[in-house]
Design a binder for these strands. Sequence first.
RNA 1: GCUGCCGUAGCUCAGUGGUAGAGCACUCCCUUGGUAAGGGAGAGGUCGUGUGUUCAAUCCACACCGGCAGCACCA
Length: 657
Amino acid sequence: MRKAPNEITVTFPDRARRSVRCGITGNALAESISKSLAKRAVAMLVDGHLVDLADPIEKDASVKILSRTDPEALELIRHDAAHVMAEAVQSLWPGTQVTIGPVIENGFYYDFAKAEPFHPDDLEKIENKMREIIARNAPFTKEYWSREQAEAFFKARGELFKVELVDAIPKGEDLKIYRQGEWLDLCRGPHMTATGHIGKAFKLTKFAGSYWRGDHTKPQLQRVYGTAWATEPELAGYLKQMEEAEKRDHRKLGREMDLFHFQEEGPGVVFWHPKGWALFQNLINYIRRRQNAAGYHEVNAPQLLDKSLWETSGHWATFRENMFTTVTDDEREFVIKPMNCPGHIQIFKHGLRSYRELPYRVAEFGNVHRYEPSGALHGLMRVRAFTQDDAHVFCTQEQIAEECIKINDLILSIYRDFGFDEITVKLSTRPDKRVGEDALWDQAEAVMSAILDDIRALSNGRVRTGINPGEGAFYGPKFEYVLRDAIGRDWQCGTTQVDFNLPARFGAFYIDRDGEKKTPVMIHRALFGSLERFIGILLESSAGHLPLWLAPLQALVCTIVSDADQYAVEVLAALKAAGVRAEVDLRNEKINYKVREHSLAKVPALLVVGKREAEEGTVSLRRLGSDKQEVLPLEAAIARLAEEAVPPDLKRAGAAA
RNA sequence: GCUGCCGUAGCUCAGUGGUAGAGCACUCCCUUGGUAAGGGAGAGGUCGUGUGUUCAAUCCACACCGGCAGCACCA
């Protein structure tokens, strides 16, 4: 295409091209295309970058003019809403300082410095004020200010946090100020053309405390969260989804399914009820089979060990605040174990180890206690006493990569058995607070980053990888296995940590081929991490509809009339004989009542028997989540359930045999 | 730990400055009913704990304990 001087070529999403004056604004460009587009336009994408519609286009570029319902505009709606919220709060409570107000997943927040705390009713007040501001439909306009001008302006207004933000902007960079009517804010942008485009599909959701710059030593601010969408049905859909998520809260399910409880005298510790403990044991049995098959030796190290071991490991220096301790009458100080590694090292150190024994893999369902900050406690997800499916592999440096890959394969295979297929593995590198020489860290990180590449390559696209800088353990870098649950939430569960430090600190060694003492490398690994937490994840992901092999109570025989009692007891006996975990409900209640009650308790299979079934030797089978029934011979029903109740690993073993 | 909110029967929740109520669950009675609540009766609470204000506190104030949300933390 031939161009006059001072002309540029813009390419539209439909691949149409047009020559336009260099420096044309998005507004003018939209106007030149059509009146209706100009009217709808709120911002634009230039070469994929979201920018203000008022910005000039100064070189050949692909341009997409955005209207507010384009997906790319959603973050602008949210960001604009945050600005409007800040204006609303400052207009309602003069003297409140504004700080930052970013877009987050599903919405936005703004942090304020305000002397008086917000009151729950304030959400509605702010929302109403926001609607007023939006109705005024003031245009967003951008200005470039000098650093001095901005600093003087915010200082004069008493906006000290903004002054700090101005100071933090690198010298030589433009300071952008966005105005909306009378109000203005320092902001990177971009914004839509006017506040009216925010629309009505937003809602303020909650207040919370937060820290300035996320640092708990800095002043505490008040955060207001909101959600915003392009359309009201989308907002309604989101709110509905939140309600649904609430219904699968594992604390609620735990009560409804009678799995566990908490009470005041034991903050952060779980009372496991019979059904919950059965589920717990089902998980342990499964993991035990898997890791025994993978060459681990299961052990049990003491619950209580002298403080000196924790000083040696470095835990005392790093986590003393989070450890439960006890002093005995003879004035010895003991630590209730928060970790299993020192115990396992003692087992490794007991007696002389040969290189022939390596890799030496010790596993334990270790019951650990950690004094977690009270505000961190959350049902089973964050507790003060939990069971780790922990293990330590003592090996040579040459064996590290192979062991890490084996662990990786084991973890991925296990997650697959639970239906978790979307996995991310993240490498967490050295934290600021750590033990050991930097040379050892260099080595460990180099080894692990190579392994990370292998993991991704070996996974055929199933595993994504990433880096978490500075998030490693104090004794070594780690892989974190993050799984995505049925409703799209991510949970960090498994972990593999390569440790060049602790074995040496404890003086662990083995006798190598050449007769010399060598220090082994230790790999820490956990599969689910915390069994308590994993059960919470399982419950929320499945909404309590556990697969049959895990369900603590798999089947319930329900009678319709008492004439069927005798038969029901026979059915129960037959189920039990086939290894199905079952109970019988002979109560003098209607079948509707029984079905409702057991369905609410999430019993996977109901075997209903009345006169007819008793006479014919059949059962009416109803599965959780369905309102259909199927009448089939008792043996057929039992065979089906027994088959389905076989854990996935045993099923594979059976198929192979 | 920090900020805010909350704490009444096993659960979900009303309520009042003059020592408390509902529904479900529980016990008993009637009912034998075909796939998500049949009917009736009964029992059940030092209103989280402590101190204070008051003639009088479940209610007001303060402290503590516990919970919820977010932040911070997570070997």
